[in-house]
Nucleic acid binder design. Structure first.
Lengths: 345, 345
DNA sequence: CTCATTTTTCAAAACGCTTTGAGAATTGCT
DNA sequence: AGCAATTCTCAAAGCGTTTTGAAAAATGAG
């Protein structure tokens, strides 16, 4: 069933039928009703590919998912696209995802742009040495960064958490509880977000006049076993930390395992505070959640990002005015933190 | 830069240029080289939408990701699509993902089919009362199930793990170690996979002449806190289990927490064996992995699924011959299992 | 009842590619 | 050189929409 057949059945021209279905005013209410009814009865829906060609709009957004060298997939990616997907559905957009080896990434962007595969792109996980935004700008395709690029904040649209502030607050919170040696389990410091988090951690310590001990900081992929490993190393050292700050729930779970396996109690002997992206299958919710955390939903970030990009695409005139959206993280008190030991009676 | 402009530049017809680029034999090697070179220099790539309309093939596969009522996203989904994505990239296919509320799912399939959005669909997480395969058959669109449908095994193509066998073996393994009371933390038993796993568990117990104690079985979303909660309940009961069998790594982590918080040692006092889907950010690898497990990579399943569906689409003639692929799970000995207490000297 | 408006409808031209059916140019054979 | 076979190239017709520019039908004012 295509437009031609449908209009034949109705004894109308394709023009009129098309207009009736697309809500144009140049068609009488009566005719429109007749068209709509028949389309429904015959199960007609416009062929997407033809529509795309005719309109020049694909009504779809691309996400490129680079696999890191060690094949690790970050779970926050899924939460993000699930959020974005909700918005896409609302606006009638489709989501196209390309999974690609890290080094092919540029070629993929080129192809997407040259072949006009999508109307816009969301770029994930900006790195310290970031170049994708320049490429995309050159390719002249609308895009949005999930995460800022240092030094190019004004040149792109982005959605990001205030990572520096969040981690400064978290560190401050531990300091206020009397902790002085705070282990920091961070993500890979090739990544923008990890750099900022580290800055926040260091800022807070510096303001409090604490010395910065590099042996307390670890940076790696954010898996549970690595959390255990690094936390154990620190706990076994001659001058162990009394608290941990971690960049993800998985790392926190790992750290907790380490603490317990040393016969210590979390929240009592050793405090843990973590960043919580609100990963649906690693929930940390409830009235008093398991982990004290700085929380910012990555699913919401996905929704916002999609909204911004889509409106950006729709009013193309605002060509070089970039929209940015900074999300603040809440500090949520849970059961994994308490006063430092030396502070107790 | 489009085909017309390119052929003008070359003083060739669009036909010849198109054929040269698509590898048709009716064009001289010299001309082809000239065309390819110029295309490269001018950065020409065919407009995807036009190509799709002309060929009638979208070169893309759809995945529908229904959000469960409680918003839980299963991490295996991401690993699966990452695997499938690799295959798609190889074959030049794109991946389209629709995120959708559970009850809109049927409407989405209808739209995808009517509007010819994709060449094929992969259906995830078949449920006990499954109807999607019937709908897709009616809509006459190629599809493949990730997971069998009981009673319709021969009517669809599918890729699945031998869940029943794997869980029977795992249970048998625990029985061999002398365990008689085995707690079973399963996924939601609305799902096909969970039903089969339960059957495997029960089969092994029955063969061993053990009584089936319903109070030892739990079925829920597979999150870490729920694992802890159910395991704790069981451990606190009057007749606690000496071992746990869990349907996911997240549940196993939860169970481990419970065991430890009761002052017991995993692998010593209480054994844990889990199904391991090989989730990249919850690794359970190495020579002697943390958890003893029945392991089957869901990423590989994704790759296989994509291959099967694509070849299915390519040789359309094999219209009603379905391809099925059963994956066996390996039983990998790790550190979380040991002989039952009452068996020791 | 006419003529100017307004409303409703339409035929045809895009959109950018692939594919068909056929014609021109080249080659090989006698 | 002449003719058949082969190689190379092309104009034009799709694919299924939207959109343009114009015509036909209905309405309203005088």
């Amino acid at each position: 069933m295509n437009l031609k057949e449908l209009s034949n059945r109705l004894n109308l021209s394709q023009t009129t039928v098309s207009r009736a279905l697309n809500g144009y005013p140049e068609v009488s209410a009566k005719t429109r009703q007749r068209v709509v009814d028949m389309a429904r009865d015959l199960g007609y829906a416009p062929n997407q590919q033809a529509q795309r060609l005719a309109t020049g709009k694909t009504m779809s957004i691309g996400h490129v998912l680079p696999r890191s060298p060690n094949e690790m997939l970050n779970p926050i990616f899924m939460e993000f696209i699930a959020g974005a997907g909700l918005t896409y559905a609302q606006y009638g957009y489709d989501m196209m995802i390309s999974v690609v080896a890290n080094d092919d990434e540029e070629a993929i962007y080129r192809e997407i742009a040259n072949r006009k595969k999508v109307d816009g792109i969301i770029v994930h996980a900006p790195r310290r040495q970031e170049t994708r935004h320049k490429l995309l700008k050159k390719l002249n395709i609308p895009f949005l960064m999930h995460g800022r690029i240092t030094g190019a904040e004004a040149e792109t649209s982005w959605v990001d958490i205030n990572n520096r502030r969040a981690f400064e607050r978290a560190t401050q919170f531990l300091l206020d509880l009397g902790h002085r040696r705070i282990g920091f389990l961070n993500g890979n410091e090739e990544m923008e977000f990890a750099i900022r988090r580290k800055e926040g951690y260091i800022n807070a310590l510096t303001k409090a006049g604490c010395e910065i001990d590099p042996t307390l900081m670890h940076s790696s992929e954010m898996t549970e076993p690595l959390g255990t490993e690094f936390a154990l190393n620190l706990l076994r050292s001659s001058n162990p930390p009394t608290a941990f700050l971690t960049s993800s729930i998985t790392l926190a779970i790992g750290a907790e395992t380490a603490v317990k396996s040393n016969g210590l109690q979390v929240g009592n002997d050793v405090s843990i505070i973590t960043h919580d992206d609100v990963i649906s299958f690693l929930p940390n919710s409830g009235e008093s959640p398991h982990f004290t955390c700085i929380r910012s939903s990555v699913g919401e970030a996905g929704q916002r990002a999609a909204e911004i990009l889509i409106t950006d695409i729709i009013d193309q005139e605002s060509n070089d005015r970039h929209v940015t959206h900074m999300m603040e993280a809440d500090l949520i008190l849970g059961q994994s933190t308490g006063p430092a030991l030396q502070n107790r009676g």
